[in-house]
Amino acid sequence: MSKRAATLAASGPVTRVTPTTIVVLAVLTAHVLMVIFPFVWMGYSTFKTNKEFMRSVWSLPTTFSFDAYIGAWSGGALGTYAMNSLWIMAGATLLTVIVATLAGYALAVYKPRWMAGVELSLMAAMAIPAYVALVPLVVLLRNAGLLDTHLGVILPTAAFNIPVSIFIMRAFFVTLPRELFDAARLDGTGEFGIFRHIAMPIAWPAMFTVAVVNMIWVWNDFLFPVVFINSPARKTLPVGLTDFVGEHITNYPVMLAAILIAAIAPLVLFVFFERQITSALLGGAVKE
């Protein structure tokens, strides 16, 4: 009997292996294999030469060579790109979370008369495709002297992510009972104190959700970094990875090795914070 079935049997009301559990396990196993295979394929393909790769995409490597990794590491400054991505991700996420928490709280708790107008403008901002704003943004950034700087990527990125983040935060604060704030007010707590000591500690999971979602967006963003950054030393990872994709010719093992190296940082982060990230994403989905 498999270990998994044993734990299943021990942990819950399922006491016997019924045909249903077998079907469910078979489907899940097939699903897991489908999800995992691309990663396994990527892993073993990096040990092939381009010639072997061209002969057969699926075959296992006949020799065990690290040439692809050497090529990937020397072909671009992957370490520098990763640091650049990290800075931009941290900056844009921090800015977005701060603004979105404050604005979401204000809109939910004070319910200002002009809230409808604010909501409408936020909706309108969300409807603007990034491509439309590209040229005006370049002009703006150049005049501000921010073209080809990390701050020049952080600010527009945050500006584009803030509206939807405000909506998430507002949706959370609306669910909190008003009595909570009224009680604090009667006790003489100031408005910022209420926010800082009562609203924020409760809002922590929602803020984490917004942060995680933003980190994923910013980390993967390609358009703004590719247009706003010129210096090779300031490139982000997704932009730097295009150095390994050719117009007509691509060395696949080297490209896959570069992708694997680039995936290390987010992978390590995920392994360490897996519990927080999954609970944050669930916390955002279900309201109490």
Partner: peptide, 16 residues
């Protein structure tokens, strides 16, 4: 810049 990214980059620089 790589060919396809280059086109976006140059077009934006020229337009601005």
């Amino acid at each position: 810049a790589e060919q396809s990214a280059y086109k976006t980059k140059l077009n934006t620089a020229m337009a601005s």
